[in-house]
């Protein structure tokens, strides 16, 4: 709690994060036109995950939160990843 109260994130950092997000969005939009076949979806997913990570880290303050909250988010991501893996255990081998 004290960390949250003392920490001040600069506007310039927020601005830089915003620019990075916009650049990644632009790449997401242009990537399909490059005709990269199956890699198109992979690129879109990697970019989307990167953007989500950046939003969580900076805009949602995970970078400055306490360990408990970080563990909670990691746990959620672990469950999400496991659910995807199990689902694909069906799709890949079907």
């Amino acid at each position: 709690m004290t960390t949250e109260e003392k920490h001040i994130t600069s506007y310039s950092l927020y601005a830089r994060v915003l620019i990075i997000l916009m650049v990644l969005t632009a790449i997401t939009i242009t990537a399909p036109s490059l005709n990269l076949t199956a890699f198109t979806i992979l690129i879109a997913l990697v970019i989307a995950s990167t953007k989500a990570g950046i939003v969580l880290t900076y805009f949602m303050h995970l970078k400055i939160e306490n360990t408990l909250l970080r563990i909670m988010v990691i746990m959620v991501l672990g469950i999400y990843g496991s659910v995807i893996i199990l689902t694909f255990a069906d799709y890949i081998y079907r």
Binding site: L86, D90, Y93, R94
Partner: peptide, 11 residues
């Protein structure tokens, strides 16, 4: 339902 047998074993 028609899932892969590998997935069925795991589940």
């Amino acid at each position: 339902s028609g899932m892969s047998k590998e997935a069925i074993w795991v589940f």
